[in-house]
């Protein structure tokens, strides 16, 4: 039987889990974007089951890539060939779908990043330093505080006639400033628009500091859905912002493309198969290692009765392989 090849990309982030499947020509076969809800393993398994039913029957998975802050976890659960950081994954996806992109603005749940692309490669990048102000989770929190569905947030901002100025440097300051403006009687739209402008100002001064932002500017990540933020970026940069069709799953797409590159060398995939993933029972626990004065928090992932992975240690005692981990257990 002639089967069609497919490549999966899995992006496990702080706020959402995205899974995509592409074919040999980078055409999207299926995409799923769901909220992590603090239960990454369970949601990932459900998402994989949904993906399995979304794909045609004659499709065979030939490669899997994972990315995002939960990429190690996802790699163990699904059996990944490529485990890549978000910068590289987003950079590759942007270059593939918007070939003339020179700047990528990516705002996710906990991270915001800027990627500078020149001549088809990443030439510079930056990520937010010590603070997550202005990322998706902050917007989420403000939306729920104002009792506005996050999907309406951007539209509401566009209705504003005279945006108020909100302190954008710190999420805590921004929140108290928003409350003050609220108590002064400013309208909700104006406050939200002010918040969008503050976040963009903060992004450009912090993450984008000293970077040469040249068009074409691509805006991706979950926050790109927010038309208020998009408009604020256009106003601040004075140029058009391109939001790619699949802006919300660009990281997963990058991971899938990397998996395709991996498989093109004729290498066999480590993918466990949808059925196994759904069936496998994962449990995790964490404990404090008392091997030295660092007291690392070790997370242990069990697949059924056997240890699937352990991480969190500084010294590598727990992460080398399961057998050394057993030995380490015996030592302690």
């Amino acid at each position: 039987m002639n089967t069609k090849k497919a490549f999966l990309g899995v992006d496990v982030g702080s706020v959402s889990i995205n899974v995509v499947a592409i074919d040999q020509e980078n055409n999207l076969l299926g995409k799923i974007y769901v909220r992590t809800e603090g239960k990454p393993i369970q949601i990932l398994k459900e998402t994989m089951a949904n993906m399995a039913s979304m794909l045609p029957h004659d499709v065979e998975v030939k490669g899997v890539g994972t990315t995002g802050s939960g990429r190690e976890l996802a790699a163990v659960v699904v059996g990944a060939d490529v485990v890549k950081n978000e910068i590289t994954a987003h950079g590759i996806a942007a270059l593939t779908f918007v070939p003339d992109a020179r700047t990528v603005i990516e705002i996710g749940g906990q991270d915001s990043k800027i990627i500078i692309l020149r001549n088809g490669v990443v030439s510079d990048f930056a990520m937010n330093t010590v603070c997550a102000a202005g990322t998706g989770s902050f917007l989420d929190r403000q939306a729920s505080r104002l009792n506005i569905p996050i999907e309406k947030f951007g539209e509401l901002a566009l209705k504003s006639k005279s945006p108020v100025r909100i302190a954008g440097r710190c999420a805590v300051f921004a929140e108290s400033d928003m409350i003050h403006k609220q108590q002064m009687g400013c309208s909700c739209e104006d406050i939200i628009r002010g918040l969008c402008e503050a976040l963009v100002r903060n992004y450009l001064n912090n993450v984008g500091k000293g970077k040469e932002i040249l068009p074409r500017v691509v805006f991706q990540g979950g926050v790109a859905a927010n038309v208020g933020i998009r408009k604020a970026f256009e106003d601040a940069l004075g140029c058009e912002i391109t939001v790619p069709e699949h802006y919300d799953v660009m990281g997963a797409l990058g991971a899938a493309i990397l998996a395709k590159d991996y498989a093109s060398g004729g290498r066999k995939t480590k993918f466990k198969g949808f059925e196994t993933i759904v069936k496998e029972e994962f449990t995790s626990r964490s404990f404090e290692c008392s091997g030295c004065a660092n007291y690392c928090e070790i997370v242990e992932l069990m697949a059924g009765d056997s240890i699937a992975a352990r991480w969190g240690g500084r010294c590598g005692r727990w992460s080398r392989s399961n057998r050394t981990a057993e030995k380490a257990c015996a030592v302690i």
């Binding site: 890549k84 950081n85 978000e86 590289t88 490669v121 990048f125």
Partner: peptide
């Protein structure tokens, strides 16, 4: 690690 890995990739 993410930042370091991305830097080496670059």
């Amino acid at each position: 690690n993410t930042r370091l890995e991305a830097f080496i990739d670059m």
